[in-house]
Structure formats: C-alpha cells, structure tokens
C-alpha cells in the first residue's frame, strides 16, 4: 500500500508535502527509542493544550505497559493515536478519564494534565473528572433502556429533573450526534433495537448530554460497517468545533481523514512497554514521518 493511497479523502495543507520514502529513511536503523519528546507540532503555537501527558509511565501490576509518554493534545482538534494491537493506545485513553482504576493493581508515574491540572492528584474527584472527559467505547454499549432514558441518564445523575429541560438536552444531543432524524418518533423504544451504527451514535449523544470538554474514542468504528463508519466520522468532524477529541484507531485512513494530529505508538519487542514513537501534525506523520518505524507502519509493512 502506498502512502498516497492512504491519503484518500485527506487533503495535504501545502502542495508538495508528500515525501518520497527515501528522504525520511534514517541512518543506522533500527533505532531503539527511549520515549520521544513530542512537542506540540509546528504551527500550533496559538492553540491551547487541553490535555498534556508528561513523562507518563503506566504499570499493570509489575508489568510496565507504557513508558515515558509525553503528549500534548490541542483544544478543539482531533488527535489520533495509531499503532499495532497491544501497543498501549487504549491504555493512554484510560489514563485520561482514570478508567484504568476500575481494573485494580495499576500504577501511574508522571503527570496527566487537564487544563494544566494533574488529574491523578489525590484531591481530584474522579466522578467530576469523568463528567468532563467522556468516552466512547469500541463496542457500542447503550444501556438496556429506552433511547430517551439513555440520553437522559447523565443529566439525571447531575440532578436535572424537569421534563422540558431533559427533553431539550435529549433533542440537542441527538441532533449533534446526527441521530435525531432517525429516532425522533421512537424515543421510547429500546436502544437495543437500534442498528450498530445507530447505537454508537446514541452512545455519542449520551456522552454529549453531560457536556464534556474532552471526548475519548476507543476505536469507535471497529464494530461498524463502512456506511456507519462514514456517519460517525462526519459526526466527529462537526464535534471538534466544540470538543477536544482523542481517538484511537486501527484504521490509518480514518486517522488521516479525521485527525489534525497523530501519534504513532509501538511496542518494540514483546514484553516491552508501549512507547510513543512519533507525534505531530497528521499531514506530516502521513507524508514525511521522521521515524522509519512510523513510515513502515503507515505504508503497511507491518502491524
């Protein structure tokens, strides 16, 4: 697969960005990477960083799963994390809403900052954090309730009781998630009767209803067909106006299409922790990556 074909649907910002493979090849490879200090990508000085990971390492029990990840996530942009299975992409996501705590026996080193504040501080309320950082899961997971009750679930937790207020939130969230037209006449029906793609958009609407600032998406399209995937991608495109989105994806075309920034993660050898090999503007990662591993991965030589 050539680099060009990966860029279907993605338009390079400047003509001539596409780089021949030879230019980016590094001398004396393979190189062992000890955690790349990925500064914010060039040309983003004006963009505020919403989420920052600083020298983050992560352990499941004794097993080191992530090593020294440093990553700046700019506000109101889509940041994609790509890499082969098991490289720790989803683990990075979990650290940002502290869902890793639901597993037990985990340890975090370094800092994860949301608006400059370390969310792993002891006095940060995890419940409040999760209402600010929403998550869309790999497999759509609507609750076995009506469509309406799924969306109203979050607002009700926060004490919204008035019927008309809830009605407004439900409609607004469904419109934002591009599902309103399909379900407006059957809000009382079970969410389980929707198709997979509709269920995933319902989950997006459910997350939007609590008005988070950051939305984490863990391979949100991996269980969906191409049409449903297209709809989710269109939704993401609109959502980034108001939300900071971090998406983990296996699908490189998808990363190229929808993200402004891309991080490439990799486990160098079995048993080693996942590292962030390269991070920068999506246009750069997909056309002239600095690292050979990145190039090999996006051109489909492994992974």
């Amino acid at each position: 697969m050539s680099t060009e074909s990966l860029l279907d649907g993605w338009k390079p910002t400047a003509p001539g960005d596409v780089t021949p493979r030879e230019e980016s090849k590094m001398e004396g490879s393979p190189v062992r990477i000890e955690g790349v200090r990925a500064a914010a990508a060039p040309g983003t000085a004006s963009v505020r960083n919403k989420v920052e990971l600083k020298d983050v390492s992560f352990y499941y029990g004794d097993f080191k799963a992530l090593d020294d990840i440093t990553l700046d996530v700019p506000e109101n942009q889509v940041t994609a994390l790509i890499g082969p299975s098991g490289c720790g992409k989803s683990t990075v996501l979990r650290l940002i809403n502290r869902m890793h705590e639901e597993i037990g026996h985990t340890r975090v080193e370094g800092q994860v900052l949301l608006d400059g504040r370390d969310i792993h501080d002891r006095d940060v309320d995890v419940v409040e954090l999760r209402s600010r950082v929403g998550e869309i899961f790999q497999k759509p997971n609507p609750f076995p309730k009506s469509i309406y009750d799924n969306i109203a679930y979050g607002p009700r937790l926060m004490g919204v009781r008035k019927k008309d207020e809830l009605d407004d939130i439900v409609e607004r969230s469904l419109v934002q998630a591009a599902l309103w037209k399909e379900v407006k006449n059957k809000l009382g029906n079970s969410a389980m009767d929707l198709s997979g793609g509709q269920q995933q958009r319902l989950c997006i609407a459910r997350t939007l209803a609590v008005q988070p600032e950051v939305i984490l998406m863990d391979e949100p399209c991996s269980a969906l067909d191409p049409v449903a995937t297209q709809q989710i991608e269109d939704t993401i495109e609109v959502l980034k106006e108001d939300y900071t989105i971090i998406i983990v994806t296996h699908n490189m075309q998808q990363a190229a299409r929808i993200s402004q920034f891309t991080g490439f993660m990799l486990v160098q050898e079995t048993g080693e922790p996942g590292r962030l090999v390269e991070y920068g503007a999506t246009s750069k990662i997909f056309t002239m990556p600095d690292r050979e591993e990145t190039e090999n991965y996006i051109t489909g030589r492994f992974g």
Partner: peptide
C-alpha cells in the same frame, strides 16, 4: 460494558 458506560459518564 454497561458499568463502564455508566462510570465513564460520571456516575
């Protein structure tokens, strides 16, 4: 998945 979905919404 239901539990995770709920917890991730800030429940």
């Amino acid at each position: 998945a239901y539990r995770q979905g709920s917890l991730a919404l800030g429940a």
